[in-house]
């Protein structure tokens, strides 16, 4: 039997729109939060490039193959240009190594959850989230970022990955065209609340640690917490 194709609705198992948009917002927000003011124009340019590429990908799928491909190429070039602009603008190696991994990471997250071809990539999502995390860590090591900012950046990184993963698995099971916003939203709200709790907890511990707790005690505390989590898993 051959499958009828005429005016039949088809399902594309691309990442779900809502969670994908949330993942991109978290990635971009995290990078923007941590970047110095001088890098913000370059970030804006990157956003334009991403939007052009996404529009091109949409055109490609709706039949405008050549124009779409052209726009995707232009968008990718603009993103590359934005990274170059950021590097030129910032000058110092330290600042560059703090901002550029995040910019590349955010672009990778977009490519993972809004793919030009295929059904999205978990590997690319991990690469992107890792890039954003590197920005958080390098910023914390080299530049004088406040502790709450770093906490928010870490939470933003985790939420980026979480929303991207949700987008991917909803896309796999239900497809992009299905109405799935309600289920996605509840999952994301849950994750955001947990992230809020984590930030609050970190901030509280920081306050306690200001009352002189040694680094060694911290390490012990962290190892203890990890072992406790591992025990919960069993």
């Amino acid at each position: 039997m051959t499958e009828p194709t005429r005016d039949r609705v088809s399902v594309s198992h691309r990442p779900a729109r809502f969670s994908a948009a949330v993942a991109v917002l978290f990635a971009a927000g995290t990078v923007a939060l941590l970047a110095p003011a001088t890098a913000l124009p370059a970030l804006g340019l990157e956003l334009v490039g991403v939007a052009v590429a996404a529009g091109g990908a949409g055109l490609r799928r709706s039949g405008w193959y050549l124009l779409g491909t052209l726009l995707v190429a232009i968008g990718v070039l603009v993103v590359g240009g934005a990274v170059a602009v950021a590097a030129a603008e910032l000058g110092g190696l330290a600042d560059i190594s703090a901002v550029v991994p995040g910019m590349v990471g955010a672009a990778a997250v977009v490519a993972a959850v809004a793919p030009v071809r295929g059904t999205g990539s978990r590997g690319l999502l991990k690469v992107g989230a890792t890039g954003v995390l590197v920005t958080v860590l390098v910023t914390g090591l080299i530049r004088n970022a406040t502790f709450p900012t770093l906490l928010a950046g870490t939470a933003g990184t985790v939420l980026t990955w979480d929303a991207g993963e949700q987008a991917t698995n909803v896309g796999e099971q239900l497809g992009r065209e299905a109405a799935t916003v309600r289920g996605e939203a509840v999952h994301i709200v849950g994750s955001v609340l947990v992230a809020g709790a984590a930030v609050g907890l970190g901030y509280g511990l920081r306050r306690v640690s200001l009352l002189s707790v040694s680094l060694g005690s911290f390490v012990l505390l962290l190892v203890g917490a990890l072992l406790f989590t591992a025990a919960l898993h069993d």
């Binding site: 770093l150 970190g202 920081r206």
Partner: peptide
Amino acid sequence: VGAVGLAAKRPPLLLLAGVGVVFAA
């Protein structure tokens, strides 16, 4: 995150690992 914090001897960075622990639990 914890390893980076420890290597750099920065207690605040070490604390960031707490976010990962909370999400793991």
